[in-house]
Design a protein around this nucleic acid. Structure first.
Length: 883
RNA sequence: GGGCGGAUAGCUCAGUUGGGAGAGCACAGCCCUUACAAGGCUGGGGUCACAGGUUCGAGCCCUGUUCCGCCUACCA
């Protein structure tokens, strides 16, 4: 006998260990089964599981378990990402606690430290994934800094370089003064801030007045090498070519004309700081202006800043404002909202910064990636994301891939100390072409996303032509959040197409982001983070997984609320109790019959088998279309409301009765349907389904529910006739219950009932009167075509019948009259609506015939109903007055 | 600046070719009926944001408006 309540904790670990031991999650390199492959979006190796991972992981696991059970050679390839900047920051912070700086430690020692850290904590998130039930093939686990993946990175770098798609140059890049590295455009988060626009007066050197420029970054004036105006701006036409003198530092700079300038902004004259602003950089090149770098790598003012050298950039800003103000150069300031770039890793304000970096020339790669989606080689789901994808790809700019940090793939480039030679090589070169052996490798590492862009094929063994690669590439679907659509998905598309010639995945399923119950983005600083492990502790992993699946409607963010998890824990308990019910009704040695379509099956049996057939189909179809929420709600509805609320109640008389074969058929059908329901549910709730399934009779020929064939429509037996008959029986039951409920008649009181049944319903109800007696708590029911309504009865009218419950001594007649009057009103409204519609010639003429017929039938039905209700009211009224 | 999405019951949300709107939770009434009170039965509750349009018919299609959210951008 099972425990009264489901206790998840011990059970989860037990079954996970069992699955691993049996190697169910291990895919075959070569197989006669069709392949199905998902590569995991590798979480940061230093990370720990948050609710977003939990969602991502749950959806992937549902897909992979479903496909595995459906007969696919299913591979879910797991791994972690070295997460360059993030990981380096974590370890640096840790070292700082002991007063150690990475520079005093040195590169080699520091990298060793990070590896130690990785060994210690790198398994955390992997273990958390396992605790959530992830059915990954752990024998294929990868890490982006693995030897194999590093070979792939070098191969790609060298080939792109050889094709001229990687180049080195001095450009303005985004620089994080705290992380001390370049960032790609994507790694900068723009945040709208309320700032000020300052207006500075620059005097003409000829002493005749001044020109006013506006800026949000006053300190950059130290790097100004020109003032630009629009060539056609009347106000400034005569000023072009004149020279102004920068205050305090007394640098003389020219006024130039450039089409770029927007005359309507500020004063129409713009200071040009080529080394510190992307637009100014371009102008600087066009006009051959000097590039003066006024900053150092850590965000302080350089020697070029003259009197401000050594100051922090923001301190310098304040000082510049003060000084220029005192000298009368600050004309005014205005409030000004503008977007300020922040480092996505440490939130420090980034600076446009001039430096030597490596870039990928990305347009040629992007073009192919656009085509692949346009040609439907890769389908993005929901398709709305395709627009974002195209938009980004079409406006893509070269990708800065070098990072000035130590943790990552070092750039495979060597410089000769004795000549100008630059060597790009797969292998570490021994000597230069000039014969020199004094080579030094480029100090920089590659952007982390460079290596993760290769993930779908590097993890399968590329550049080797492995069996895994042949079997599983292109992968079947990538499941991830939209937040890394550009960072990762887009780049995998480009690299996969470039180096494999085919798209990396057939489908990309983009899911929503999880927010808190108020719709706010979760963040540690806001303190509104939902810890999935706390949830699984409190409610069990299965309940959390089911909740996430039920929430995962396409194209909408998820507002996560704990109450919903609680609700699904109740569902779990419901499922659990069916197992208890079965075990209570099975006696030692009871045989479970194979359920076939036969005369032995009762109406209830046939009905539930038909429903099983239909729900199996629905669930498979919903999963096929990534409608996780639909599949979850179909299962919920079926198991709770059809299986538990109806079927289990319907068969109780058979189970408690004396008819042995009826008993056996009912139990067998129940076990059959329940077993299939568990299997349908297994991808969503792996643990509880396995626990129950293992104890269910008749499952011994398969070792685990993990490898049981996933149910399809054929697992049930479709029977529309049984469903129609059952609907009639249910109507009768619901009708009587409704009278009981609304008139507050206690469930313990057995009611008499009379049913005037139309045509076929007469036979159906008479055949199944036992169901009605049990579920509606009635006795002495009389059913017939010509039933005369009793004088003092409550009534309910259904399409196929009129139900009467004699009320003598049960309730007051007034209550029933008012109940019926309410129903009357409703029916009148219905009729009015239908008549209006049917009188409309255009409707009758233009609407499809079937729709018109349907409305006519309804109309007739309601007219009948109205008559019945009215006559009942009349009778009751007569009774009332005669009393 | 450009783009995308959302507004449906008190709350969270479904609604798949346009044919008078559903679920879960919450709420109310009755019930400790031997699987389950983490339960059962019954019931109340909606101008589908607003304004137009197309149509016999609009939650759904078109136009505009308001509010909210997100993405993107070299707005000095």
């Amino acid at each position: 006998m099972l425990e009264k309540r489901y206790q998840p904790k011990d059970i989860e670990k037990k079954w996970y260990d069992f699955w691993i031991e049996k190697e169910y999650f291990k895919a075959e390199s070569k197989s006669s089964k069709p392949p199905f492959c998902i590569v995991i979006p590798p979480p940061n190796v230093t990370g720990s599981l948050h609710i977003g991972h939990a969602l991502d992981m749950t959806l992937q696991d549902i897909m992979i378990r479903w496909k595995r059970m459906s007969g696919f050679n299913a591979l879910w390839l797991p791994g972690t990402d070295h997460a360059g900047i993030a990981t380096q920051n974590v370890v640096e912070k840790e070292l700082k606690k002991n007063g150690i700086d990475r520079h005093t430690l040195g590169r080699k020692k520091f990298v060793e430290k990070v590896w130690e850290w990785k060994k210690l904590y790198g398994g955390t998130i992997i273990n958390q994934l396992k605790s959530m039930g992830a059915s990954c093939d752990w024998s294929r686990e990868r890490f982006t800094l693995d030897e194999g993946l590093s070979v792939a990175v070098r191969e790609v770098f060298v080939r792109l370089y050889e094709e001229g798609l990687i180049y080195r140059g001095e450009y303005l890049i985004n620089w994080c003064p705290r992380c001390h590295t370049a960032l790609s455009d994507l790694e900068v988060e723009h945040e709208d801030l309320r700032g000020k626009l300052y207006y500075f007066k620059y005097n003409y050197v000829d002493g005749k007045g001044h020109i006013t420029v506006a800026t949000t970054r006053p300190e950059t004036y130290l790097g100004d090498t020109a003032v630009a105006v629009h060539p056609e701006d009347e106000r400034y036409r005569d000023m072009i070519g004149k020279v102004v003198r920068l205050p305090i530092i007394n640098r003389d700079i020219p006024i130039i004309a450039d089409e770029f300038v927007d005359s309507s902004f500020g004063t129409g004259a713009v200071k040009v700081t080529p080394a510190h602003d992307p637009n100014d950089f371009e102008m600087g090149r066009r006009h051959d202006l000097p590039f003066i770098n006024i900053l150092t790598g850590d965000g302080k003012m350089s020697e070029e800043a003259g009197p401000y050298a050594g100051q922090d950039r923001f301190e310098c800003r304040r000082n510049v404002l003060r000084d220029l103000g005192e000298k009368g150069h600050l004309e005014q300031d205005k409030d000004h909202d503008h977007a300020v770039g922040h480092c996505y890793r440490c939130k420090t304000i980034v600076e446009p910064y001039l430096s030597m970096q490596w870039f990928v020339k990305i347009k040629p790669l992007a073009e192919e990636a656009i085509r692949a989606v346009k040609d439907n080689r890769t389908k993005i789901i929901p398709s709305g994301w395709e627009n974002s994808y195209f938009d980004w790809m079409e406006n893509i700019r070269d990708w800065c891939i070098s990072r000035q940090i130590w943790w990552g793939h070092r750039i495979p480039v060597w410089y000769c100390d004795d000549c100008e030679e630059l060597i790009v090589s797969r292998e570490t070169p021994a000597q230069c072409t000039c014969g020199s052996v004094h080579l030094s490798q480029d100090e920089d590492v590659l952007d982390t996303w460079f290596s993760s862009a290769l993930w779908p094929f590097s993890t399968l063994g590329w550049p080797g032509e492995t069996e895994d690669l042949a079997t599983f590439y292109p992968t079947s679907v990538l499941i991830t959040g939209f937040d890394i659509l550009f960072f990762w998905v887009a780049r995998m598309m480009m690299m996969g197409l470039k180096f494999r010639g085919t798209q990396p995945f057939d489908h990309v399923y983009i899911h929503a982001l999880i927010r808190d119950a108020e719709g706010q983005k979760m963040s540690k600083s806001k303190g509104n983070v939902v810890d999935p492990l706390k949830m699984t502790d409190a409610y069990g992993t299965d309940a959390v997984r089911f909740t996430l699946a039920a929430y995962a409607a396409q194209g909408r963010d998820i507002k996560f609320s704990e109450e919903r998890v609680e609700g699904y824990r109740h569902f779990l308990n419901k499922i659990w109790n069916v197992a208890r019910f079965i075990s209570m009704n099975l006696r030692e040695g009871d045989e479970i019959l194979t359920v076939r379509e036969s005369d032995m099956l009762s109406l209830a049996d046939k009905w539930i088998l038909s429903r099983l057939s239909s729900v199996s189909m629905e669930v498979n179809r919903a999963l096929d279309e990534y409608r996780f929420n639909d599949s979850a709600s179909h299962l919920y509805q079926f198991i709770w409301h059809e299986l538990c609320d109806w079927y289990v109640e319907l068969i109780k008389p058979a189970l408690y009765g004396d008819n042995e074969s009826g008993k056996q058929t009912a139990v067998s059908t129940l076990v059959h349907v329940y077993e299939a329901a568990l299997a349908l549910l297994h991808p969503f709730m792996p643990f509880v389904t396995e626990e129950i399934w293992q104890q269910l009779p008749g499952t011994k020929d398969v070792e685990s529910i993990c490898i049981r064939k996933y149910p399809t429509a054929e697992n049930g037996i479709e029977n529309k006739e049984a469903e129609q008959k059952m609907a009639v029986v249910m109507d009768a039951i619901t009708g009587i219950r409704s009278i009981r409920g609304e008139l507050n008649i206690s469930p313990s009181v057995e009611l008499k009932a009379l049913i005037r049944a139309h045509d076929s319903a007469d036979l159906i109800l008479n055949e199944n009167v036992a169901y009605i007696n049990t579920l509606a708590r009635t006795k002495d029911i009389v059913i017939g075509k010509d039933i005369e309504p009793p004088r003092d009865a409550a009534a309910d009218v259904k399409p196929a019948m009129e139900i009467f419950v004699p009320l003598k001594g049960l309730i007051d007649v007034e209550a029933e009259i008012s109940r019926l009057t309410k129903d009357l009103k409703k029916t009148e409204d219905e009729i009015a609506f239908l008549e209006k519609k049917l009188k409309n010639e255009n409707f009758v003429k233009k609407a499809p015939q079937a729709v018109v017929e349907e409305n006519r039938a309804k109309h007739t039905e309601y007219i009948d109903k109205l008559g019945s209700i009215q006559s009942n009211i009349d009778k009751l009224k007569k009774m009332d007055t005669s009393q």
